[in-house]
Design a protein around this nucleic acid. Structure first.
Lengths: 345, 345
DNA sequence: AATGTGCCAGGAACCGGTTCCACAAAATCG
DNA sequence: CGATTTTGTGGAACCGGTTCCTGGCACATT
């Protein structure tokens, strides 16, 4: 309700002095500063953001682009971003839309063009060429988290390494028939990180001389998706793998449930390793690679703020660590044939 | 880049005419209107929102207050809101913070006071008395979804009826030992809707003359929470209920998993009913009451827009339907003792 | 004594739009 | 046909802040 003119009047100074006193820029005597601040507090003065934005060009808002919210990773990254922004008194404008949707296109063309934000955090999206073009065109700093590296700031785990380590954990336990579960066959709808995990798996298999038996069982990247894929995968006794690595914990947990339903004991007869350390991982004793999306969200904000404070600052690429958490969904293979193969270890 | 002055110049008219032509308010000849529109399109003109906001008082933004994002319900409501806002070209400012947290308090005091939105959607929160006060103080329209009815617009399912119907379904199958799982003991941290569901259960039990045996097994409102509570609940053969109603599907699914782990057959030996029709419900053949949070989010936006278009319009309270979806996690009780009791039905 | 230099404060321009007002031309009316 | 209303347009004020510019004053410097 009260404007800066009211504050100025109450403190007996001019608008410009009041502004200087409150923003902290320029010369103001200590005495008048406190007087103005008191007047502002008394009147409950809150600067009108659009007025500030109009003249300074700063919106005190960051935009966040997310493909979906009902996946654990995205929800937690968003919460991390939110928390970090709250501390810095920044607002958060959410731009959510599924890739390849009409809504997504509309968002890029109209909403982002409004530039109602100082910077952008793109989480887990692999922008199309056109979208990428627009993104840089904005001229605002962009940081990507858990997704495609847009050549600017980015934070994520090393998904490729994660896929490799998960696979090597199983190899180390003597497994040879290992299937990778999750993602779609052609990989076009798969997110960048998920694709990297698959690549890590493939590399590990190749290095172990098992390239020929590397297999990919596509599925929706959800618990029911993993469940469905595993039911199919485990159905045939002949071709059944001794272990799988799930593209993420949701898929891995789905596979564990499927195995249990089919009466296959985990980990005695079937090992499962996931990636994420999802809230469900503990409950299913899932061996997994831990990542902390909340922290990644915070880190993304940190990066963005640096860039905002100094536009010429160099950009950074942060890889968060993703330690292997061994629980009890993985065990050394124990059937006779494999025991011979695995004797070396 | 290009301002309205540039557009005006290009079209050979004054700023005011250009503005009128583009906003559609006031008299402009059809001919000049098209000329101005063409000029705007050519220059890629996008009005600066803060300038518009400054003079009109409209931000074209709605604020959304959410306690957390990693629950199915909230995530989907938010997506529904987002979709509906996108169609109407409104921006979405996210205000997420857990109840009773410092961040939450800070949010209310500072962020919401900025009034960077035309209206507010509060999802699934039961605002404290103080918060409620501030909310109406803003003078902006508020609509609540799936939560406390702030006396203004609201949309939700009838949670109390849902709790009752779920319970009556079990009663109809002959169950008498029915426990309600989910929520904390004193109910202080429990969300409003969850509390209503419990009340519905209690009412149904009371009406069936089973008030004495009504039981509430508290737990975190998550799948692991339901799992933990069920493990404890099912541990003692003597006091074990024949059925439970989960405060939501996540809890119910956790209970199903617990039962399976303990070798208790669902539904033969143990019936489970949930509420929500979560994405996991199908996978676990869960009998549940269906609600569509995405739709509720859309409805909330609809309500808000009505209020925005006509501030004097009466407020509405929408109850979405929540039909019972019978899958195979519930069955008639079949042990001898209960068969006698249940014979009347 | 004249000339900086640093500190403090006020007046006015400005950010980019919308809207009020004045005015002219055309259309309608009695 | 004159009076009034409707239609179309431009100029200027305004929304609520920030910032540039000007100028007074005190103090230090040559």
């Amino acid at each position: 309700m009260a404007g800066i003119a009211d504050v100025a009047r109450a403190a007996g100074v001019s608008k410009s002095t009041a502004s200087r006193a409150l923003t902290g820029a320029g010369y103001v005597s200590e005495e008048t500063r406190t007087r103005v601040q008191k007047a502002a507090a008394d009147l409950g003065y809150v600067p009108t953001t659009s007025a500030v934005n109009l003249v300074t060009g700063r919106t005190q808002t960051v935009g966040v682009v997310v493909p979906t919210l009902d996946r654990w990773f995205f929800a937690h990254v968003l919460e991390g971003i939110q928390d970090a922004l709250l501390e810095r008194r920044y607002d958060l404008a959410l731009y959510g839309a599924q890739p390849d949707s009409g809504a997504r296109r509309q968002m890029f063309e109209h909403f982002l063009a409004r530039k109602r934000f100082d910077g952008l955090i793109a989480v887990g999206i692999e922008p199309s060429a056109h979208e990428l073009e627009r993104l840089v065109e904005f001229g605002k700093p962009v940081v990507s988290v858990g997704g495609y590296d847009v050549g600017t700031n980015a934070v994520s785990i090393d998904d490729r390494a994660a896929g490799r380590i998960a696979t090597e954990h199983l190899l180390g336990l003597g497994h040879r028939e290992i299937t990778f579960v999750g993602g779609d066959p052609d990989g076009r709808r798969t997110s960048y990180g998920d694709r990297q995990r698959l690549d890590g798996y493939l590399a590990a298999m190749h290095d172990a001389g098992l390239a020929a038996s590397a297999r990919h069982s596509p599925s929706e990247v959800t618990m029911p998706g993993g469940y469905g894929a595993a039911v199919e995968l485990l159905g045939d006794r002949q071709t059944r793998p001794t272990a799988i690595v799930g593209v993420c914990d949701e898929v891995a947990v789905g596979a564990v449930i499927a195995a249990r339903r089919l009466g296959i004991r985990v980990p005695d007869q079937f090992s499962v390793v996931g990636i994420d350390d999802h809230a469900y991982a503990e409950m299913f004793s899932l061996t997994t690679l831990q990542q902390k999306p909340h922290q990644q969200g915070r880190a993304a904000v940190q990066l963005l703020m640096w860039q905002l404070d100094d536009p010429d600052a160099p950009t950074h690429r942060i890889y968060e660590s993703s330690p292997l958490i061994v629980r009890s969904s993985t065990a050394a293979i124990d059937d006779a044939a494999s025991a011979i193969v695995g004797v070396g270890r």
